[in-house]
């Protein structure tokens, strides 16, 4: 595997009301990796991802994605937020949400075309949701909602996937679908960065690891980074069986 750095974070500090949530962090995400970000509650995992994506203000530091500022390469980044961050009672269908993935390429004012609709349908098919395309999103289960989000990322044709706890509260079947999707994406040269909360499946699902607790504890390939000492330092020691 190549060792190119696809996401480079330098000296990143982020804060809520002058109270730092992330301290002076350097993160390197390896191209074509499946990288997990772990850390205890309040460690700043979501904040880090939002900082990288430019969704929250940073106090210091900078972020480069594919060697460029994030704003320049936004089309190539798909973000899958925590499932509860959107209003699932919104009057729309599964297919329509997936179609939103195409908006990235449309820009202002232009409407989705037939080609975009086809891409959205294909994306739903890839994660086994084609039968639910006209279902209103409020009637989808937790796992199905997460799959709709994944399909939206597929429809976007992105190179990098950022996912915020995609496996939280989903059924076993959906978990498998999502992990298969990550592995398949990797074989197509794509990179995924996933906030994960289950230490038991960590080594099985991912090949790179970032351990965070306001500061970066350690990062690198899974075998060398997933150690008892590192976990203890991140206050995660008790979690490991």
């Amino acid at each position: 595997m190549s060792q190119n750095i696809i996401v480079k974070v330098e000296d990143l500090t982020m804060a809520y009301n002058e109270k730092p949530v992330l301290w002076d962090n350097d993160v390197d995400i390896v191209e074509n990796s499946r990288t997990a970000i772990i850390g205890p509650n309040g460690a700043g995992k979501s904040t880090l991802v939002k900082g990288i994506l430019g969704l929250q203000k940073t106090l210091s530091g900078y972020v480069e994605v594919m060697g460029q500022p994030v704003k320049q390469v936004q089309k190539k980044i798909a973000y899958i937020p925590q499932s509860n961050s959107v209003n699932w009672d919104f009057p729309t269908t599964a297919l329509d949400v997936v179609l939103m993935g195409r908006y990235v390429h449309l820009g202002w004012i232009k409407r989705p075309r037939k080609k975009d609709l086809e891409k959205a349908e294909q994306a739903l098919q890839k994660i086994g949701m084609q039968d639910y395309k006209n279902r209103q999103i409020s009637q989808l289960s937790g796992g199905q909602r997460q799959r709709v989000f994944i399909a939206r990322a597929i429809a976007q044709d992105a190179e990098i996937y950022f996912m915020d706890e995609p496996l939280a509260g989903v059924d076993k079947n959906t978990e498998k679908v999502i992990i298969d999707f990550l592995k398949k994406s990797q074989s197509q040269g794509k990179t995924s960065i996933v906030i994960h909360h289950d230490l038991n499946t960590l080594a099985e699902y991912f090949d790179h690891l970032v351990i965070l607790n306001k500061k970066i504890i350690d990062q690198g390939p899974m075998q060398t980074t997933l150690t008892k000492e590192n976990l203890a330092q991140a206050n995660l020691g008790g979690w490991l069986r």
């Binding site: 430019g54 969704l55 936004q74 937020p81």
Partner: peptide
């Protein structure tokens, strides 16, 4: 389209450039 996406998922809308 822009109003819909930013109402449903403001963060995604921001990343998508709206």
């Amino acid at each position: 389209k822009e109003l819909k996406i930013s109402t449903f998922d403001p963060e995604f809308a921001t990343i998508a450039g709206f």
